[in-house]
């Protein structure tokens, strides 16, 4: 049996597919920057889903061009919401990138497991307790790659 592929199926598949690809990307990536990018993809999917919520066949954009009678228009509310959601997304992405720049400068890497390992080490160090063995690293000692001197700096550093 040949399933009939309708336009709506394609659109919904695209939106939900983007969300799934994005979420899978966040879970699977080993690199923090890729995780942030994957998040952007998932966000695009959610926004598309929101736009689809207001779509109407045979309708025009919700802008009055003539006084009096006007053709049917699509729902304006989801469009306003998507505008809001996109701007929110931009703000968060910009903040994420600036934090990533700092992490790259401090740790010299953006590899997820290495960053987590260093973070755990640092937390344990400030609390002066022996460190738990990280769940993501193999048992036994693994030397941490050294931080290049030039990237170590003290701004905001906490004693």
């Amino acid at each position: 049996m040949m399933p009939d592929i309708s336009l709506e199926l394609i659109l919904y598949t695209t939106a939900l597919g983007l969300i799934s690809i994005g979420l899978a990307g966040v879970v699977l990536s080993r690199h923090l920057f890729r995780m942030v990018l994957a998040l952007g993809i998932a966000e695009a999917g959610a926004n598309l889903m929101l736009v689809l919520a207001g779509y109407r066949w045979d309708a025009v954009a919700p802008i009055l061009t003539t006084l009096g009678e006007h053709p049917p228009m699509v729902d304006p509310v989801p469009q306003a919401m998507v505008l809001t959601a996109i701007v929110i997304g931009v703000g968060i992405q910009a903040l994420a990138v600036s934090i990533l720049i700092r992490i790259r400068q401090r740790y010299g890497t953006l590899d997820r497991s290495q960053v987590v390992e260093r973070m755990d080490a640092e937390i344990a160090d400030t609390a002066s307790i022996p460190r738990d063995v990280s769940q993501e690293s193999p048992l036994g000692e693994r030397p941490l790659p050294s931080i290049p001197d030039s990237t170590v700096e003290i701004r905001g550093g906490h004693s």
Binding site: G22, V36, L39, E43, A96, I99, Y107, V115, V116, R118
Partner: peptide, 29 residues
């Protein structure tokens, strides 16, 4: 509020929180 570990925890929180906001937005849609 702190040193390098604060950046690392902030970005991990940001990513998790981002997943959460995508899901919330999906639910709202």
């Amino acid at each position: 509020s702190g040193g390098s570990a604060a950046y690392a925890s902030a970005i991990r929180y940001l990513i998790l929180s981002g997943i959460g906001s995508v899901l919330t937005l999906l639910g709202i849609a």
